[in-house]
Nucleic acid binder design. Structure first.
Lengths: 141, 141
DNA sequence: ATAGCAATTTAGCCTTGACTAACTTTAAAA
DNA sequence: TTTTAAAGTTAGTCAAGGCTAAATTGCTAT
């Protein structure tokens, strides 16, 4: 606040878009830790090949992404071995899973077809603030 | 359908993520045509400097994006002059503005603070399917 | 024990969308 | 009319997130 653009609220959109760009930067990370968590729960371990199949990307792309997640402290991995979540990754995965659940259930509760809700929730979940999430959740009670 | 992954619905997520990636590719385009439309409506013309200020990016970034929008047929522009929407751009802008309005009004209607709703709508609008949008809209009646 | 296949990694390429720095054009003030 | 500031453009860089092709590793069945 205090800059010239804040005088007119109609023109003060830059912050909104800056936060939007931040959200984008986090999306792939969130989707990966969530999926790695799912794979460990469902299949006992998270392998590159399973991530590639579920995201619909190549193994090379998965490899790149896992390196970045490792660099950023969300996962650990050793060459030719499966992938593990760190504490940090585990925490994020849990938060994302819960958020996904709330968004999905909310959409279904207002009458969206479950298949469509699954689709939309995957995109929407990354852009729902804590406050909006609480409103969604309160509507499920 | 018909591929091996479709046998187990839990594992058939690739299509969801492919559509999510498509949505991302369209987001910047949608935000720009919407903003260009707003600027023309509010100020009579859309200049690079105004786009840069409202999105919170540099003039160089705006320039790059406008070139891409021009390549893709959404806008026309001549060097050192203001930017115009084509028919195609106009149509998209109108659709986006309407979608934004519905998402925003829906969030406010369920109790989200207007400032938060403005924030969240900017991210959510790109990930709401036609069907979910209709459900949102029907709830506003 | 090893041959061969599946999984993983590496290398190199592309586009998008961001940046800075330097340059050019336009338009307004002196 | 000239100077100068604002606006726009260009060039070069970077990271993310895709891809293909080729090399390497690990596992399994013979």
């Amino acid at each position: 606040m205090g800059d010239d653009t804040s005088l007119n609220p109609r023109h003060n959109k830059a912050e909104v878009f800056a936060r939007l760009r931040d959200a984008h930067a986090r999306e792939v990370t969130e989707d990966y830790v969530e999926m790695i968590g799912d794979l460990i729960a469902e299949e006992g371990e998270a392998r590159s090949v399973a991530l590639a199949e579920r995201f619909g990307v190549t193994a090379a792309t998965v490899n790149n992404t896992i390196k970045r997640l490792e660099r950023d402290g969300y996962v650990t991995s050793r060459p030719y071995r499966s992938i593990f979540l760190t504490e940090k990754g585990e925490t994020l995965a849990k938060k994302c899973r819960e958020r996904h659940r709330i968004v999905y259930n909310f959409l279904v509760s207002i009458g969206v077809d479950p298949a469509v809700a699954e689709f939309d929730a995957e995109g929407i979940e990354h852009h729902v603030s804590e406050e909006t999430l609480r409103v969604f959740d309160s509507r499920l009670k």
